[in-house]
Amino acid sequence: MTTYSRTDSGEETILRIEGTLDAATAPDLRTVVDQIVDEGRMNITLELSSLRLIDSSGVGVIVMLFKRVRANGGQVRIQGLRDQPRAIFRLLRLDRVFPT
């Protein structure tokens, strides 16, 4: 099960993802990403301290968010990464891409 909660505060958007972000749930996040980008949000923080499991499909959506926001001149930060998701981010060298 995956839960998304979005909080907008001024120019910053905090997107909290809980549970599992995988091939089954990534399409739902893609919809959330589309909304965030379409609204021109520029300062995004992904709060992942309650993310239990991520696979390459989930990573793909986060990378897509990063690319689209960066193309608009914004930035995406990662917060709270740990355990299996952190290992995946390190393996894919994304820990060098995202400010944490």
Partner: peptide, 18 residues
Amino acid sequence: DLDALPESGMGLFIIRSF
């Protein structure tokens, strides 16, 4: 190519690595 920030094609790489 991890430097290119791929959005797919990472599955087998993860298997091979872990």
